[in-house]
Computed example of a mutant assay.
Amino acid sequence: MKIYHYTKCNRLDSIFNDGFIATEMKRTLNRAPKFTDNVWFTEKLQYPKTALPLLSMFTETQLMLHVLQKHVHVDLDKIGAIFGSFYRFGFDSTETRFKKWWYSDERVVIREQADWICMESVANKVGDDVRAFWIAEADVLLENFSLEEHVDGGWKTILSNTSLSNLSSKERDVIEKLKEVSYQKCIEFDIPIFEPLPIAA
């Protein structure tokens, strides 16, 4: 089964420069409290409501709106036309670096905490489904991955069966173009540009 890490255009530059998807505490721009330090994935084929960027000009990006009302449409293409496209990295769930969140030791540690119970409740109310979540305990190297972009209401494959350690010239060109677009969006909207992180031993 394929699992996905959903992300935004402005994140691609740092992800590709790092060579991995970093755990959440290393690259967060969100001031919300963190209870874990994992890389998060989902089996769901839709962009998670809990991962939407909060953008004042788009009311549908407000998480509480989705808690209070069902079936609020989020037009990723409309938002992406301004702030940059939405993307998802795909991986095979059978790889040993991934584990199902619901059965993980990490969840056992915090599942009785009131704040975490509330967070999982919100995720379920907005349709993200906690039981569809997967995690990686450590940074996820960009090996054996696919990358898709949300275009015209659906997901278009940009890279498939790709590994940074063994790129073709065509794949390298695609990545360089994505990094440039990402970098320019960071400049345009005054988003911090991260220096590459060292790859963990």
Score class of each variant (00 low, 15 high):
Phe58Cys: 05
Ala114Gly: 08
Trp102Asp: 05
Lys99Arg: 12
Ala114Tyr: 13
Phe20Leu: 05
Val108Tyr: 04
Lys44Glu: 13
Val122Gln: 08
Phe35Asp: 08
Phe86Pro: 00
Glu24Val: 08
His66Cys: 02
Phe98Met: 03
Glu112Met: 03
Val39Ile: 02
Glu43Asn: 04
Val72Asn: 07
Tyr87Ala: 00
Glu43Lys: 12
Ala138Trp: 14
Pro33Ala: 06
Asp92Ala: 09
Arg88Cys: 03
Thr61Lys: 01
Arg88Phe: 03
Thr59Met: 04
Val108Asp: 04
Ala22Glu: 09
Leu76Asn: 05
Asn30Glu: 13
Val74Trp: 05
Val74Phe: 04
Lys34Val: 02
Ala138Tyr: 14
Val39Asp: 00
Leu29Trp: 14
Met57Tyr: 11
Lys70Cys: 11
Arg131Met: 08
Asp129Glu: 13
Tyr87Trp: 02
Leu29Pro: 10
Asp129Ala: 03
Tyr47Cys: 01
Gly90Tyr: 09
Asp105Arg: 10
Glu106Pro: 01
Leu68Pro: 02
Tyr103Ala: 02
His73Asp: 15
Val72Gly: 01
Leu76Pro: 09
Phe41Met: 06
Val122Ser: 02
Leu63Thr: 14
Val122Phe: 06
Trp116Leu: 02
Gly84Lys: 01
Asp75Lys: 03
Thr59Gln: 10
His73Met: 11
Ala138His: 15
Lys70Asn: 15
Trp116Lys: 01
Phe41Asn: 03
Gln46Met: 13
Val108Trp: 01
Val39Glu: 07
Val126Arg: 00
His66Leu: 06
Tyr87Val: 03
Phe35Trp: 13
Lys26Cys: 07
Ala136Gly: 07
Trp134Ser: 00
Ala132Thr: 14
Trp40Asn: 01
Ile82Val: 07
Tyr87Thr: 01
Asp128Leu: 06
His71Pro: 03
Pro48Met: 03
Val108Thr: 12
Asp37Ser: 11
Asp92Lys: 07
Leu45Cys: 06
Asn30Val: 13
Met64Asp: 15
Ile79Asp: 00
Ile117Val: 13
Asp92Pro: 12
Ser93Asp: 12
His71Leu: 03
Gln69Thr: 15
Ile21Thr: 06
Ala51Arg: 08
Gln62Ile: 10
Ile117Phe: 03
Lys78Asp: 07
Pro53Ser: 07
Leu55Ile: 15
Lys78Arg: 14
Met119Leu: 10
